[in-house]
């Protein structure tokens, strides 16, 4: 008997779910409008004006087509293509993120190598880590002044903790035996760090990096809603102010897709550094 592979069957099921989901969504929208009777809420908010309604998927797809066929147009400060907006967001995320990695990974390495440092820094990390990154925003705006730099700072501060904690933990947890292998081979501290500790701790470090990029992408949307000007977060907020819900739904989907791609990149890296014991 012919048997489809597991992946193929799963993919088929995904497509079916997508199509069914879209059909239900499409069917639900006109039904709501055709019902004629207005709910109490709609009466209160001005009678269910059709232009502010939730769009059916066909409209979103049409919008997506229109936007994605010319993603980089630039017609003034309030009208830029989705590609440009996402580009700004990615630029901010990556800048803040790599600055954080540049500090968190070497610093985490040092903390992880010394039990005293690990214990000494731990209370600070534990207090700073649960602070919502957006809570830093007013302080950042006041101290840094520039809203662009403040957004990058917020990304920096939110992505530093998982990388710092995971690096320190991963380095501290490297098996004594592997260190002893390095010692019996007379490797110096630098070579031990690069040829034994780093590869041994890499899976934990990359897991931290993956968590960080996820958080950074979550935070950038909120941060850009606050600072405004450019970026996908600002775009969502701006379209909401224009009551263009089709664009809002479309950009929500784009946020998801970009987030997924960023995560997939680190998933790939993670697979490369993971080892089985």
């Amino acid at each position: 008997m012919y048997q489809l592979s597991l992946n193929l069957r799963a993919a088929l099921l995904s497509v079916i779910m997508l199509v069914v989901g879209l059909l239900i969504w499409e069917a639900a929208i006109p039904a709501q409008q055709a019902a004629g009777e207005l709910t109490e809420y709609e009466l209160l908010t001005g009678g269910g004006a059709p232009k502010a309604g939730v769009p059916p998927p066909s409209q979103v797809i049409a919008k997506a087509w229109e936007q994605l066929s010319d993603p980089f147009y630039d017609a003034g400060p309030n009208d830029k293509g989705i590609g440009i907006q996402i580009g700004y967001s990615i630029y901010r995320v990556l800048t803040g993120y790599f600055l954080a990695a540049l500090i968190a990974i070497p610093f985490g390495f040092l903390i992880g190598m010394s039990q005293v440092a690990y214990k000494a820094f731990n209370p600070f990390i534990q207090v700073l880590r649960p602070i919502s990154p957006l809570a830093w925003m007013p302080l950042a705006l006041f101290i840094i002044g520039d809203s662009e730099a403040s957004a990058i700072f917020v990304i920096f501060i939110c992505s530093i903790w998982p990388m710092l904690i995971n690096t320190a933990f991963g380095v501290a947890a490297v098996r004594e035996d592997w260190i002893n292998v390095a010692r019996t081979h007379e490797l110096g501290p630098i070579r031990t760090a690069f040829s034994v500790i780093l590869p041994a701790a890499a899976p934990t470090i990359v897991t931290g990096m993956r968590i960080s990029i996820g958080i950074a992408w979550l935070v950038i949307v909120a941060a850009e809603m606050l600072v405004g000007g450019t970026g996908i977060g600002y775009y969502v907020w701006n379209e909401w102010n224009n009551l263009d819900l089709t664009s809002v739904v479309f950009s929500i989907l784009m946020i998801g897709v970009v987030g997924m791609l960023l995560d997939a990149m680190f998933g790939l890296l993670q697979r490369r550094v993971t080892y089985a014991e």
Partner: peptide, 27 residues
Amino acid sequence: GPSLDRGVVFQNYSLLPWLTTLKNVTF
């Protein structure tokens, strides 16, 4: 202190799991 003059075979092998067999020896 440890030295290359004293080779150790540890009880639990202590191979580096991210390296291949050959790389463990070339290490």
